[in-house]
Amino acid sequence: MAAQHIGPVVVGVDGSESALDAVRWAAAEAASRNVPLRLVAVFSPLPAAPRHDMGLTAAYLEQVSASLRATLELSTEVAAGAAPGIEIDSELRTGYPAQVLTDESRSAVLTVVGSRGLGGFTGLLVGSVAVSLAAHGDSPVLVVRGDRKPGSGLPVLLGVDGSPAGEAAVGTGFAEASRRSVPLRALHAWSDVVVDPAVAVLIDHQAWETEERALLAERLAGWSATFPDVEVERIVVRDRPAHALVEHSADAGLVVVGSRGRGGLAGLVLGSVGQAVLRHAQCPVLVVRG
């Protein structure tokens, strides 16, 4: 039987400090998974230029290409220092960051990007790159933010929405906690803000919370059996999901969320909840597509 192919950890680099932080995280992730690390810089083509500007365009192309090659060399040195002994390769690709990284994710076990950058990665979280990558990438996507260092020993914070689409995120949350040998905090947030105020006074919030706790327990039960080594803390809060996740990220080493779901986490990443988590979480965020 043929050996199963295990892809690399892919990281997008652009020379910014944020991207170098992403490189350090990606190197640590590659080492812990015993897979290669692949560094990718993206050279975005210029818009069509008038013929009389071709000399300037050629000079610009050469200057940017040289700068990106130097960026790959520096990133390789940083990665080797962060995780000595790992296998590293790099490539300068032409295209647009979201498209290139989505393509790279098809053969990756994990795709890593920084929270802000230069050049093609400018405005990563407030623009379309991270959203597009999280929505269309084939691998989990790690957006490195905050000042956490790999191996911090802090818990993994898992957002659980109770939907079948969120099962992949739940499984990944357990796996990440097990691999890091840290506790897992499973957070389920529910809110009655969509209830008509005229009937809100009739709601039995105690019964509602009991049902939400039962839902969380049901979603975790099978995975707890699969990962008996993981200590699980269940957190059920009456709050807006994005607000709850951002607040609890203050003492977490990693936040794990699904790319879409229902209830409080519906439309995660593509909607306002996910964008808020990506913009305001105080630690790296791992987005898992279901």
Rank of each mutant, 00 (worst) to 15 (best):
V141S: 01
V255P: 02
T102L: 01
S191P: 06
G119M: 12
L268H: 10
V113P: 00
Q99D: 09
V257G: 03
A28M: 15
S16K: 15
E247R: 06
R213Q: 15
L142R: 00
H243Y: 12
S128Q: 12
A217Q: 13
H248T: 03
V193M: 14
D161I: 08
L74C: 07
A66V: 08
R240S: 11
E231D: 15
S75E: 05
G15C: 10
L215W: 08
R116N: 13
L37W: 02
L265C: 10
V269E: 01
L101K: 09
L39N: 00
L72H: 08
A168N: 06
V193F: 15
V256M: 02
G137F: 04
Q206T: 15
T94H: 13
L92C: 03
A252G: 11
P228V: 06
P197F: 09
D192R: 13
T57D: 01
V100K: 07
G114A: 09
V257S: 08
L124S: 01
R234T: 13
A276T: 14
A49W: 03
E62S: 13
G55Y: 08
A22G: 04
S115Q: 03
P140K: 00
R116I: 08
E211W: 06
H5F: 15
S191L: 11
H248V: 08
I86V: 12
S105W: 00
S32R: 15
G264Q: 01
R240N: 13
F121A: 14
A28K: 13
L278T: 03
A244Q: 02
W25Y: 11
H188K: 15
E209I: 05
V194W: 15
A80Q: 13
R180G: 03
A244L: 07
V9H: 07
L254R: 02
E212T: 04
V35Q: 05
S259F: 05
A27L: 15
R180F: 06
W208V: 14
V273R: 09
A26K: 00
S152G: 14
L187A: 00
Q99W: 04
L142N: 02
H136R: 11
V35L: 07
P45Y: 04
L46K: 00
S163Y: 02
S181Q: 14
E29D: 11
D239Y: 03
D138T: 10
V35A: 03
P45L: 02
V35M: 08
I86L: 13
A30R: 02
Q99L: 07
D229L: 02
L286D: 00
G290E: 14
Q4W: 11
A225E: 14
V255R: 01
G271K: 03
V9W: 06
V160S: 00
V194I: 12
H136V: 00
R279V: 01
L220T: 00
V109K: 07
Y96A: 08
R240G: 04
V194Q: 10
A250W: 05
L118A: 10
V131K: 11
Y60F: 15
P228W: 06
V109H: 05
P197G: 09
S224F: 04
A207R: 15
A59Q: 14
D138K: 14
